[in-house]
Write a protein that binds this DNA or RNA. Structure first.
Lengths: 356, 356
DNA sequence: CTGAAAGCGCTTACAG
DNA sequence: CTGAAAGCGCTTACAG
């Protein structure tokens, strides 16, 4: 009642182990007849090649690694990662690849983890999330010559292939839309400043605001948690030149911002417009439903998986682009209503930039 | 510049491979002196045993598997799984174990996946989530004699060790609390009826209501999505004997229910009390903050990991209990306010159970 | 198109 | 306490 090995199948089929190996791996050099027979027998015996023996003999391990830095983000809360994993895994499974997941507490720990995985031959490659400029994980992967794909801008990916959606396009679209609605004071509640995509969003936000002539554009950084988003929102709404529109770098903070508005007696969207970056189901569950920047995250994950598999197979891979997130206006954005208070401030702020 | 093998280390240390093996695996039978020397040399050479060679030679693969059924739940949305994985993985990593994650579309696919993993010797054991009564995964795991731990009630775990928090305790606590506040008509917006824990919650809810003398206790089943939760809420709030309190089986549906109340012009908590089962950050971000049933999910995951590791090591494992979820009252529960409409209905419903 | 043999890098009895 | 050898179950040149 032992598990059958390749030798058992070979014996039963009256061929050599090499032939069975060629058949189960779809390699050429076997007649259709033999192939069929071996396949049938192998099937009927319930044979499955031992992944360890396979890997030891030089074949790929068919496992890909992903580390999640749980200090940097509130993983449990952001639907992003689960959706990413879902798309990623779906594509990997289609190629008989598994996904090894590991938590890490910082960038250095992630780099160490990659090294271990590589030394132990546990994975054939890894996926890198949340890159920073000068990310030490990138340097380590280059040093190890380990197949990897960076989810982020090429500027932070070094010589590694990368996949990203251009957040600056989305930022431009959002700011222009809000400006077209009549907003003059827009603020950006951003994520962790060191992350490459946070920089891109922040710079694009600032540049676009200044191009349009909005001088009060301010960015506040947070750690992506709802709590820090709420704190940032309170500070912004309590400031002298209160913004009439807020762009949040994730949906969780946008939901928190919505609650803060309610708590401070500001009606959304009349007195405050809100845009969420990343559009999960939660955006449609709150009241009013959140205007959000939407992209297909599972598709992003699937694309990343394909790119990584190609890299593992030695195909020359370059930076690839995913569709940028698109603005999906719902119930939290409208023309700013001029209350006595805000109208006043508007005049004051508008005045100095007549020269633009 | 090749990766060092155990032979290289043995050569450099002037000992046999067997001795190196004993050292790196912490096995006895090596003098402290040799042990120290081998350890140093191994370290300085950057040696790490190949996981494949190790596994092929009969050692455990040091990988544990987890399948996620993404049809059954909206994985991306519910913080539960990410928190579970987080706790699970932390504990596994401490024992040099990896976590292999795979999506599956149904119970049968999960069972097949377990079998493949086992045949390929990819994992040493698996964790089973969302069990049903008569779950085919449990039967398959028993048949394979594969180490596994069920996250769910022992009644659905067959002969497998299980870990669960008794949801009936939480249901009793919640119903009694709401009844004490004066609620007479409580409804339960439940998850998928086939899941073992849904049954337990539903039965406990019904039993407790009847013990207290609440005859209008009704349970509506959903698929855990916010959308289905919203639909269920609308139906309940539009019914003749509108409930004054709702218990939702997850936080996402509770948030959706809150939005539906706003949309229907019912004030929460005055006209409608809401309780969420599972307490994630999102519960504190909405306005008013949700009263929720709270438990330490990462700790639950860590506990599950320990139990699975023990099972893998052949220790006899039995059903273990985790602390039940505890009610954490926040802003969505209070005494029901008697509006003309509800007061009316209350009278009608209270009347028939005067005999209780 | 097929077979026989070497080898991947460990662990595990078995001797000494 | 330590070494030498067999063996785990594959894949991959290499012959034929």
């Amino acid at each position: 009642m032992k598990r059958p090995t390749i030798a058992d199948v070979a014996l039963a089929a009256g061929v050599s182990k090499g032939t069975v190996s060629a058949v189960i791996n779809g390699r050429p050099g076997v007649s259709d007849d033999t192939r069929r027979r071996v396949r049938n027998i192998s099937e009927s015996m319930g044979f499955r090649a031992s992944s360890a023996a396979r890997a030891l003999a030089g074949a790929p391990s068919r496992v890909v690694g992903l580390t999640l830095n749980r200090e940097a983000r509130t993983l449990g809360l952001e639907p992003f990662f689960m959706e990413l994993i879902s798309g990623l895994e779906e594509e990997l499974a289609a190629h008989s690849y598994g996904l090894l997941v590991q938590m890490a507490h910082d960038e250095a720990a992630e780099a160490t983890r990659y090294r271990r995985w590589w030394q132990e031959r546990r994975v054939d490659g890894v996926l890198v999330c949340d890159v920073r400029e000068g990310d030490e994980r990138v340097a380590e992967l280059e040093r190890l010559r380990m197949p990897a794909v960076v989810l982020g801008p090429p500027s932070a990916a070094g010589t590694l292939p990368s996949l990203w959606s251009d957040d600056s396009i989305s930022a431009v679209e959002t700011v222009r839309y809000l400006a077209a609605l009549g907003h003059q004071r827009i603020a950006h509640v951003a994520g962790i400043p060191e992350l490459a995509h946070t920089r891109i969003r922040t710079e694009s936000f600032a540049r676009t605001c200044s191009e349009i002539g909005l001088t009060n554009a301010v960015t506040v950084n947070t750690d992506y948690t709802g709590e820090s988003g709420a704190r940032a929102t309170r500070a912004l709404l309590a400031s002298e030149h209160r913004p009439t529109a807020l762009i949040f770098d994730n949906d969780v903070m946008a939901v928190a911002g919505l609650a803060v508005a309610a708590e401070m007696g500001l009606s959304v969207p009349d007195e405050l417009s809100i845009v969420a970056w990343d559009d999960s189901q939660i955006c449609q569950l709150v009241h009013p439903p959140l205007t959000a920047l939407n992209r297909d995250i599972p598709a992003y994950g699937a694309h990343a998986a394909r790119l990584l598999l190609a890299t593992i197979n030695g195909e020359p891979a370059t930076a690839q682009r995913e569709e940028p997130a698109r603005l999906n206006p719902r119930g939290t954005t409208t023309r700013p209503r001029m209350t006595a208070n805000t109208a006043n401030h508007t005049d004051v702020t508008v005045a100095p930039k007549g020269n633009q």
